[in-house]
Amino acid sequence: MKIARWTDDAGVGEGFVVGDRVVPFPGGRRVSDVLAGGVAAARSLHEEVKDAEGVPLSRVRLLAPLVPASVRDFVAFEEHVEGVSAGVEGKSDVAPEWYEAPTFYFTNPHTIRATGDVVAIPDTRRLDYELELAVVIGGVAGSTGETLDPEAAASHIFGYTVMNDWSARDLQAREMKVRLGPCKGKDFGMTLGPWIVTADELDPFLDDDGFLAVRAEVFVNGERIGEDLVSNMGWPFPELVAYASRNSIVVPGDVLGSGTVGNGGCLGELWGLGRDIPPLEPGDEVRMVIEGVGEIVNVVGDRVPAPALPPARPRPRIRQRA
């Protein structure tokens, strides 16, 4: 099953993609309702409306397939870490701590973009894409989503969507020197789409170790820049979800990105390996394709300068008011 949000002359619609048409959920339900109900309930809803006339996909504009409750993004591909660290530190280095547990950061759920959007960018000269597969969390009866083991975590994976974690590498580099972040190098935009494909649709791609062996590709202005198998990640998705829930909670509508795939999954990796590829510029088209899920396409928009802020002012560290 594929679940989508869209807009057309009738307004915003939410429902299933059935063949070459979109069909609204019955009873005015929204994507958030369907995620909370879980995959089995979604399948029953699909049976109700799968033969409805719907609206041709060609007559709607797809929106991001959900309004996330939160967005976590992992760094689960060793090859990506090798390449990016070479660009930042001058040599390829994967810290021993990377192997101990899957690391992630939280980013902004309010700047999610859709396929087809022109993505405005900050005042950066090192704009990059990041090709990822993301899981979308659904509801499971009787579970709070807290401190899950991998088996329980797998049941919380409702489906998958393509993710582009847009990155301003120059802004990010400054932020990371403060030993916190990334923040403004990342939170201006993230593309999700074109829809959510339910987890059962990708079961045929699971290898013997539980990794998803789906092909991921990225094209810039029609030229393929990167390609990888998602099964090259260091942990399968249920283990990422389990880690996210550890002493915490995952809820329906949470999005968890795989992190950037290797072999050109971002320009930063290629820069670290000495490849002379220019950063993205306004007008560039970025297309990402993940087997079994779909594709997202965006054009880089204009730079939007932000109001200037003064630097930190040295303070006397007086402990008592005058």
Rank of each mutant, 00 (worst) to 15 (best):
E239Q: 11
R174K: 15
G145L: 01
D93N: 15
T191W: 07
M176G: 09
L63V: 08
L57A: 05
V17C: 02
A199I: 02
R126P: 09
G159S: 01
T103D: 14
I3W: 11
A120M: 13
V286L: 00
S70V: 05
D9I: 02
L63M: 01
R319H: 13
M1D: 06
P122L: 13
V255E: 05
A52T: 13
E78R: 09
V84C: 09
I296D: 01
P238Y: 14
A120V: 13
P122V: 12
F106W: 15
F188R: 00
A322N: 13
T115E: 02
W98Q: 07
P278S: 12
D33L: 01
L63K: 02
E291G: 01
L267R: 05
R224N: 00
G87S: 05
A41P: 07
G294F: 10
P316C: 00
T7D: 07
D123W: 14
G226A: 01
Y243I: 04
L229M: 08
V12P: 09
V250P: 06
S245V: 04
S58Y: 14
H80D: 07
T115K: 02
R321E: 12
R43A: 15
L66H: 06
K177M: 13
R275W: 15
V118S: 05
V300Y: 14
P314W: 12
P311C: 06
Y160K: 07
L280P: 04
D207R: 06
K2S: 10
G83Q: 05
